[in-house]
């Protein structure tokens, strides 16, 4: 019960944040951090719950970004043999959904292909997939404009009750949009993790042989979670593309995958709130450091913070905090006279 109240309070605090923290700079930071937190939430489903490390996760982010950007701007592409595909500009929300679908489709494809292998090979296959995607974005100039980048991408538009289709222009509106997608992603992942699928995934992470022997369809569940994770990452790419409003092959940069991994593992992989805590910490820290150190030193501090977290909190921040919380709670209980203690069920 207290858990529910606490989580409602947290959600309420985030929802009302633009009212008590109206500084657009901070909202801007939270929007960009939030976009990467959404991607980190999706990575956590794979890394934390299936134990499969996708080092090419940025591929799905980039596919979502490019699909949404291209559809919202419209494009024509020469398919060879005298065929051209001419697509008129679509509404942004529709392009955004198409981006999610496209990313999920690639997730299915990569999942089918990649789960023939496991562990380290899965890692490398996903890295290679992201590299191939980057090279396609770079060299298929006819479609993606290659390194010349697609710019002037429209801002997000949304159908709102009572207002019709509106363009989201203010920081607060964009913040709420990112928050809404983040909440949906969080609830979706939480739902999967707590369902039969989630239990199967965890069984699989712990002992694949055993899971197989009790009749869990390993590949089926792995592919399913890859599809969901890819779709969510695609959504985060779509948000990115309509917020930053330019997309170029740099969206496939390896450092973006690294950012997501840092968020997931420092927060605590395999915990639902881990990516959020890690994401807020490592999304905001670089900005807070700007005033206090030279550019290289900022990065050195960033790297050192990661090292220290692994050193002292090897399971991540959330599990460590949970342990401290439990100890405090136990301590608190001991101070309360026995007949007043609540019964632990």
């Amino acid at each position: 019960m207290t858990r529910l109240i606490l989580s409602l309070l947290v959600v309420l605090a985030f929802v009302t944040l633009p009212f008590w923290m109206s500084d657009p700079y901070i909202l801007g930071l939270l929007i960009l951090a939030g976009i990467f937190i959404i991607a980190a939430i999706s990575l956590n489903l794979l890394l934390g719950y299936t134990g499969q490390l996708s080092l090419g996760h940025v591929a799905f982010f980039g596919i979502g970004a490019y699909t949404s950007a291209l559809l919202s701007r419209g494009f024509d592409v020469d398919l060879g043999l005298g065929l051209t595909l001419d697509v008129a500009p679509k509404p942004v929300w529709l392009s955004f959904l198409a981006g999610i679908l496209m990313a999920a489709l690639f997730g299915w494809f990569v999942g089918r292909l990649a789960f023939r292998v496991r562990g380290a090979y899965f890692v490398i296959l996903t890295v290679s997939f992201a590299q191939v995607m980057r090279l396609i974005a770079l060299n298929w100039v006819d479609l993606t404009e290659g390194p010349m980048a697609i710019n002037n991408i429209p801002s997000f538009t949304l159908w709102l009750p009572g207002l019709g289709v509106t363009t989201l222009t203010t920081k607060a509106q964009n913040y709420w949009l990112v928050l809404a997608v983040a909440v949906i992603a969080f609830v979706l992942v939480a739902h999967i993790v707590r369902s039969r699928v989630g239990r199967a995934l965890i069984a699989l992470r712990e002992n694949e042989g055993l899971a197989r022997s009790v009749g869990i369809q390993v590949t089926h569940y792995l592919v399913l979670s890859t599809v969901v994770a890819a779709g969510i990452a695609g959504a985060s790419g779509g948000l990115y593309t309509h917020y930053v409003r330019i997309v170029d092959p740099d969206v496939f940069m390896f450092i973006y995958t690294v950012t997501m991994i840092i968020m997931v593992v420092t927060g605590g992989k395999g915990t639902l709130t881990g990516p959020i805590v890690g994401g807020l910490l490592f999304g905001l820290m670089p900005e807070l450091l700007r005033d206090y150190a030279g550019p290289e030193v900022q990065w050195i501090i960033y790297g050192a913070a990661i090292v220290l977290i692994v050193f002292f909190l090897p399971n991540g921040i959330v599990p460590a905090a949970a342990r401290i919380w439990q100890r405090l709670a136990a301590l608190g209980l001991r101070l309360v006279p026995e007949h007043l203690r609540p019964r632990l069920s």
Binding site: V258, I261, I262, V265, T266, W299, I300, Y302, G303, A304, A305, I306, V307, I309, V310, F311
Partner: peptide
């Protein structure tokens, strides 16, 4: 992750 941190530093 630790190695990533060291790499950046």
């Amino acid at each position: 992750l630790l190695m990533i941190g060291l790499w950046i530093a």
